[in-house]
Write a protein that binds this DNA or RNA. Structure first.
Length: 696
RNA sequence: GGCGCGGUAGCUCAGGUGGUUAGAGCGUUGGAUUCAUAACCCAAAGGUCGGGGGUUCAACUCCCCCCCGCGCUACCA
């Protein structure tokens, strides 16, 4: 394995359209922070980079919804996230944002560098432009008359009636479905990144080169993508919010958010290290690590590396330890349903208990598969692991030392094995020492491999071994007969406590500080980091050193506290505060009664229902419409089973042009209500009517 | 439907290249103990290793089929 001189660690740039929840934390930021703390303790040269991702359509839509400017919108969430990270103790070297001037420059320069080599594909096409809204219209936001069959409601990409695929420009009398106005044709040019040209290189670099050192979920996902064949991706958009395309002919266009966002890592590094940022991005002795969630794998493993490769000079990620997702109480975390534990709310509800959340999230870290956070687990981990094992061990050693030695580190001289109980103590000491060193080694090796769950477990193991050592040697019994032995036992127990203070720092930084405070070790801890390089116990405390007061490290979580949290999940938020996405769709353009009467809406009865072969969404029905019995396909397989549909009355558009799907012609469209979560429900008359009943 | 990743004790998870009684932590039960937040220590019970075939002297570990979870993807008019 290659030896690197320094490491650049990035954590996914969170999108600035909502607050952070524990899923974000467990997925990327906590493992990244743990890893970075470990590297720092080891004394490595490292930068830890993050920031808010602030561009893209979703931001402009969110801003519109809140009735503020995009800038004001991202300011709000950027500040919220930045504060939450800070309060939680994620130790970024910099938390920047993609609206920074330095990022504009960097992203534009990056674009230019690739552009100047003639790598981008350019494609100019006339596209419809809505002058009232000031936007270019995507194909399906345009309707008009089909040139082939005269259907007046053909879409920009396809005519429903005759089934031919169209381009918007073929439509006669096009209309914008956004404003209802007639759009004008304007030429627009876009730039494409030829991902396909990097296919063979990606195969070599990932499929062959990282077969063994990348996580299986990451590797599999990449391989799947590469094997499916890559295509050029457009990297510019006609949008007002974003980074302007740095070309004369790119006026009014911006870089696609996915293009500019990862460059944000580089910009933030520049901001942090204006003079030698290149060291962290363009030196082959630097190791680049991206911490992300699984939704970001393709971007960080395939697209961004290809961009870096195209730009030249840049190093490529050495590893991308992506996590899977975190569920909450058995269900997916959902922003719109407010089924989430928000980081800033946790910090308010559990002040001074950051390590408790860190510990729980690391112990269930979704490293190999989706994981589930439950408040009961949280309580159990805090009470029976942190408190009972770690907190208790440190406390009993402290208390014993105060009791027998007035809080001074006792002498650790050789204990002559002159009698049976002393021989036993020596034996137990030897066993503990071997076990402890084995755990330290395993912990460090797990940290090196991004196996944080295991690493943290080994850290706790130090406490378990410590507890066992005390139980095996029973210094409280020996106090009456052999203080020399007690002295040796407690001296060693304190050594273990000191090493725990060191070992727990990547996982439980506050606890590390608390233990150090109790040990009163400020000033004598200069050599402590040798622990990480030697990967074995060090001797942290000199003889006669005066300890601080014993205090409990953790307080148990009571049932009421978690009940409160569970109840909180059950209620949707009363006040609109954390619901960026669930808004109601805007009203469509006004139509006339004539438009409406063109529709022939009927009630029909479902006679038969079956699942379509090879389709996840389509169900195939025979419907008695009163007039005829016809075949209708509908994409509701995720919401209804065929069995429960038979016999039901449904509303359908009976005069919709037939349309072929997966080889079968559908003669009509069943009407469904769709709620904010995308759940579909049937529209039915509230009492049975005869098949063929009209709707008006 | 295609592709990818998972499905191991009540819970969270380990189990290179197949080989004696499948492991750990938490939980449960019993015991011991009192320095400690009834904590700690010891012990026990708990698993047809998603299901079914196959290869093999031998499979949790290899092959095939199926089921379930998650993700990407096609089909949602």
């Amino acid at each position: 394995m290659k030896k690197f001189k320094r490491t650049t660690v990035t954590a996914a740039l969170p999108y600035a359209n909502g607050p952070l929840h524990i899923g974000h934390v467990a997925g990327a930021y906590l493992p990244a922070d743990t890893y970075v703390r470990y590297l720092r303790l080891r004394g490595d040269d490292i930068v830890f980079i993050c920031g808010s991702d602030e561009h893209g359509v979703a931001i402009t839509l969110g801003a519109k919804k809140e009735g503020v400017s995009p800038k004001a919108f991202v300011d709000k969430y950027h500040n919220l996230m930045k504060k939450a990270f800070q309060d939680f103790g994620i130790g970024f070297d910099i938390y920047s944002r993609t609206s920074q001037p330095v990022h504009y420059e960097t992203a534009q320069e990056f674009f230019k560098t690739i552009y100047d080599q003639g790598i981008f594909l350019e494609e100019t096409s006339d596209q419809y432009y809505d002058e009232q809204e000031g936007i270019f219209l995507a194909d399906r936001y345009i309707t008009g008359t089909c040139p082939k069959c005269g259907n007046t409601n053909a879409y920009g990409d396809q005519c429903e009636k005759c089934g031919t695929s169209l381009s918007p420009r073929e439509l006669i009398n096009p209309r914008s479905t956004v404003s209802g106005n007639t759009p004008v044709l304007k030429p627009t040019k876009h730039w494409y990144f030829p991902l396909d040209k990097y296919e063979s290189w990606l195969k070599e670099w990932i499929v062959e080169g990282h077969k063994d050192d990348w996580k299986t979920n990451v590797y599999g996902q990449c391989k799947s993508w590469i094997d499916q064949g890559l295509q050029p991706r457009s990297i510019t958009r006609d949008l007002a919010w974003g980074i302007p395309v740095p070309l004369a002919e790119g006026k009014g266009k911006v870089l696609y958010v996915w293009f500019d966002a990862p460059i944000g890592y580089i910009s933030a590094t520049k901001e942090l290290k204006p003079n030698d940022w290149q060291k962290y991005w363009q030196d082959n002795d630097t190791r680049l690590i991206h911490f992300i969630g699984k939704d970001n794998i393709v971007f960080h493993c395939v697209i961004f590396p290809s961009m870096l490769k195209a730009a030249g000079k840049y190093i490529l990620p050495d590893n991308v330890p992506a996590n899977e997702f975190l569920n909450l109480e058995g269900e997916k975390i959902s922003t719109s349903r407010n089924h989430a534990v928000w980081l800033h709310e946790y910090l308010e509800d559990f002040p001074g208990r950051r390590d408790e959340l860190r510990y729980t999230l690391t112990s269930i870290s979704p490293e190999t598969k989706d994981a589930d956070f439950t408040w009961k687990d949280y309580q159990s981990k805090v009470n029976s692991e942190l408190s009972a094992i770690l907190g208790n061990f440190v406390n009993r050693v402290m208390v014993l030392t105060w009791k027998y030695f007035d809080g001074k580190v006792p002498s650790a001289h050789e204990l002559p094995g002159t009698n049976d109980h002393r021989k036993r103590i020596l034996e137990k000491y030897q066993q503990a020492h071997n076990d402890l060193n084995a755990s330290v080694k395993e912990m460090i090796s797990a940290l090196d491999d991004f196996r944080f769950r295991e690493a943290q477990f080994q850290m706790m193991n130090l406490c378990r071994i410590g507890n066992k050592f005390l139980a095996d040697t029973e210094p409280w019994k020996l106090a009456k007969e052999d203080m020399e032995a007690v002295s040796c036992i407690l001296s060693y127990a304190l050594t273990v406590v000191g090493n725990i203070a060191i070992a727990c720092e990547p996982f439980l930084p506050d606890t590390a500080q608390n233990i150090k405070k109790q040990l009163n070790s400020t000033g004598i801890d200069t050599g402590w980091n040798a622990f990480w390089k030697k990967a074995e116990l060090i001797e942290p405390l000199p003889e006669s050193h005066q300890l601080g007061k014993a205090e409990l490290l953790f307080r148990n979580i009571e049932d009421e506290e978690i009940e409160k949290q569970i109840n909180k999940l059950k209620k949707p938020k009363a006040v609109e505060e954390v619901k960026p996405e669930s808004a109601v769709k805007p009203l469509k353009e006004t139509i006339t009664i004539d438009d409406f009467t063109k529709l022939d809406i009927r009630v029909g009865t479902i006679l038969t229902a079956e699942k379509m072969e090879k389709s996840d969404k389509l169900l195939k029905f025979t419907i008695d419409t009163g007039i005829d019995k016809r075949t209708v396909l509908s994409g509701i397989a995720k919401h209804y089973t065929p069995e429960e549909m038979v016999g039901k009355q449904v509303t359908l558009i009976a005069n919709l042009a037939p349309r072929k799907m997966m080889g079968i012609e559908s003669q009509g469209m069943i009407l469904m209500a769709e709620d904010a979560d995308g759940k579909l429900r049937l529209l039915q008359p509230n009492e049975a009517v005869n098949p063929g009943a009209t709707v008006s």
